[in-house]
Design a protein around this nucleic acid. Structure first.
Lengths: 235, 235
DNA sequence: GATGTGATTTAACAAAGTTTAACATCCTTT
DNA sequence: AAAGGATGTTAAACTTTGTTAAATCACATC
């Protein structure tokens, strides 16, 4: 259970998106190889073993569909998810005929993608290691699935956004959660207004967490936020 | 149970869409014949046996409506689904008067179409091969076929709409069921009023499910709903 | 064809979720 | 210390959803 990592092949030519996705998937404990075109992707696929492919449709050198059909020759079972721009209905449909298991249209949120990945792995492999969805935060306990923050007697129902943000903070407990990363993960678009919106949510979370002075959301100027919990001296 | 395949007649002049649909339906275990105009479609219909017709409205040689009325002369029972471009309200209505069972506006997703097909076959024939139609929801058990929600002593009969909505929620247990998808799947049209109607049904379902506090229909603002069940710790 | 019954939709108002705006404060750099 | 950008905080604006009841529709029965 400890480190049965699934391996993902990610083919995406956009450098920003690619590295972001890789980082995110790594953080989620998927061993992810990222390549920037279909040509390289195929060479990787021949050489290494993967449990799932994430292919951008529009790529230089070799597009995602062509790549998929070649991959299918080598392996008719491996799950394939296409990343595609909106408004390409027909193309997407073409993709299905090549045996894609799913597709997701840009822009998408990280969480969305993760969900699709997990759903597919659940179908093809067994259940996955066990997505974590409850945390202890000082004297609170947070249930992301139920969107519930309990502790100090009261039980606080969280809204979806509050819950998603807190979940990200928990995933990066004691580390810096980068603003941009959180924005892309939750709001998809990291524009000015969404950034301000996120600030508002940070304030809200701080208010909820106030009852325990050992729990803090610390701002790291220009970088992001860090959820820190000072351990109670064992009495 | 193994290979009782339903047979579908698909009449669609767009080559891309046609072949794609055929492939998809084949993959979903429907034995599908695809023809590119109404003329041919009729000849096929005379000659072979089908369980369902999927007719494009706009076709050369013979349009879908004309075709449908001719098919109705030969067989007054067979389910017919029209594929139609958006913005043809009146035409669609005309179609219904010819005894169409349903219609779906382009562009549509494969999933949407599949759901409609299954819904209709569910109504007309019995249940389809591998389709799930009973679920455990916390301490309830839901039988979609008989539209019955049992648990906590009482036995609640559900109306058709209640049952279809709950079925969709169950199919996406613990995931977000998108508002739009549900609307298109159940109400066909995703306009404002139907959306409000759906809200009313969510309230009704919540009321039925209230007796078990571990079962919740959580709203995801702007996205949809998710049915979450907290697993009882096995005591 | 009128009538009654349950299902579904429409209406009306309440409540919650999210974003935007406005202004205060803090950090960093110069 | 001053300036400029980033963050904190609160409240208003706006959008979506919740809930209940009345109106309408659909269908069975008489």
């Amino acid at each position: 259970m400890a480190d049965l990592k699934y391996r993902i092949l990610l083919a995406e030519d956009d450098e920003n998106l690619g590295s972001l996705l890789q980082e995110y998937l790594q953080a989620k404990n998927y061993d992810t190889d990222w390549v920037v075109n279909g040509e390289k992707a195929f060479r990787y696929f021949e050489q290494f073993h993967y449990d799932l492919c994430l292919l951008d449709v529009m790529m230089p050198v070799k597009d995602g569909f062509t790549l998929a059909s070649e991959i299918r020759i080598l392996n008719s079972d491996i799950p394939i998810i296409f990343l595609t721009a909106k408004s390409m209905k027909e193309d997407v449909l073409e993709g299905f005929s090549l045996g894609a298991d799913d597709y997701i249209t840009k822009p998408f949120s990280m969480e969305e993608l993760l969900f699709r990945i997990e759903a597919i792995l659940r179908r093809t492999k067994g259940i996955r290691g066990g997505e974590k969805n409850t945390w202890k935060i000082g004297r609170f306990s947070f249930d992301a699935k139920r969107q519930l923050l309990t502790g100090t007697g009261v039980e606080q129902k969280l809204t979806t956004k509050e819950s998603e943000l807190l979940r990200l903070l928990c995933n990066n407990m004691n580390q810096v959660l980068e603003r941009n990363f959180a924005l892309k993960a939750i709001w998809i678009d990291d524009n000015y207004f969404n950034a301000r919106s996120m600030d508002v949510y940070i304030t809200k979370l701080r208010k909820y967490l106030k009852p325990d002075p050992n729990v803090q959301i610390i701002n790291v100027h220009g970088k992001g936020y860090k959820l820190v919990v000072d351990e109670e001296p064992a009495d």
